Amino acid sequence: MKLQHAIEKLGAKKSIATASQIAEDLNIRWDGGVAVVFSAIAGDLERVPRNIGGKNDNESSAIRKWLLKYQAGKDGRASQRKSNLPGTVSDPVIEKIIGSRISGLTEKDLNKIQYAHRLAMSAENILGLMLEEYLAVSLEFHGWHCAWGETVKSVDFVHEDGRLLQVKNRSNSENSSSSTVRNGTQIEKWFRIKADRIEYMWSSLNEICGTIELSEDSFVDFVQTTLKNNPACLSVEQENPWADL
């Protein structure tokens, strides 16, 4: 049974009661953000993730899988995670392409460029997690709770009053404006930085969330503090020539 079918069969009120009991059994604190986030999908089936639940699940086990997915997402946040090393090797022809265009580069230079690129890609891989946790920490006081683990379809944060927010790091056509879901609630959409120039959009997020403290300086400080306290968040290959700097 898919989670959407489970909630539809139980109804919103009974689904929430069931989730509350299962959360207690799993030692997941229900009166935190999880209650707010689950209520968002219990009240609107269009927000239920489609990839939770299978043919062997009943109502309770499908809801249990949602709770475990939420908790796994929260436990894997940037400040707590240990990122894996890249699972692929660099293609040797990349160095040949760069070396052919910029002939003054030595073999050592080209090797360092390759590893710098891999390091930058690893940083990009955790950027979304950094942004998500920064907002989770900063916005909880204002009633916004993170939908950890992609547990609400197309939504990253849920407010205690039912408002919904989708967050992206860079501008794109997918979240350029608000959209209305079936129950009439607006999904507010925000991106941090424009893709074609360095222009940050924190003022618009402060307006959406009723805050004044969100800023790029504050986000950068959060990133630096998180990596200082948890260096394993950014994986660095042992053979990377930049590793010992």
Score class of each variant (00 low, 15 high):
203 S>L: 12
168 K>D: 01
209 C>P: 01
137 V>S: 07
219 F>Q: 10
209 C>K: 05
37 V>S: 06
232 A>Y: 07
197 R>Q: 13
205 L>V: 02
219 F>A: 11
103 S>H: 13
109 D>G: 05
133 E>S: 02
226 T>S: 09
148 W>C: 04
115 Y>D: 14
212 I>Q: 15
181 V>L: 10
181 V>S: 06
5 H>E: 15
153 K>A: 08
15 S>F: 00
168 K>M: 05
225 T>H: 11
221 D>A: 14
130 M>G: 09
200 Y>N: 07
193 I>N: 10
10 L>N: 03
185 T>W: 00
46 E>D: 12
124 E>C: 13
163 R>C: 00
148 W>M: 00
57 D>E: 06
91 D>P: 01
136 A>R: 06
151 T>Y: 03
189 K>F: 08
11 G>R: 11
190 W>T: 08
98 I>F: 01
147 A>E: 00
187 I>T: 10
202 W>Q: 05
60 S>H: 12
77 R>L: 03
125 N>G: 12
164 L>V: 02
136 A>N: 08
203 S>A: 11
204 S>V: 07
121 M>V: 12
157 F>A: 12
177 S>F: 11
56 N>G: 12
208 I>A: 10
83 S>A: 15
53 G>F: 06
171 S>G: 04
195 A>C: 01
36 V>K: 03
31 D>V: 08
59 E>K: 14
94 I>N: 14
80 Q>E: 15
180 T>S: 13
192 R>P: 00
188 E>Q: 14
126 I>K: 04
209 C>I: 05
22 I>S: 10
238 Q>D: 15
104 G>S: 11
181 V>H: 12
23 A>K: 06
130 M>I: 08
152 V>E: 04
93 V>L: 15
14 K>A: 12
40 A>D: 08
233 C>R: 12
181 V>P: 03
131 L>T: 09
5 H>N: 13
245 L>G: 10
203 S>H: 11
25 D>G: 06
147 A>N: 05
146 C>E: 09
114 Q>R: 09
23 A>L: 04
197 R>D: 09
172 N>M: 00
243 A>D: 13
190 W>G: 10
184 G>F: 08
68 L>T: 06
199 E>A: 13
4 Q>G: 04
151 T>A: 14
145 H>A: 03
55 K>G: 07
81 R>G: 08
132 E>A: 12
112 K>D: 13
188 E>W: 02
80 Q>P: 11
5 H>V: 10
137 V>P: 00
180 T>K: 14
121 M>Y: 05
111 N>Q: 14
220 V>L: 13
161 D>K: 14
82 K>I: 10
32 G>Y: 07
212 I>E: 15
61 S>W: 06
175 N>Y: 00
79 S>R: 13
178 S>W: 00
133 E>C: 01
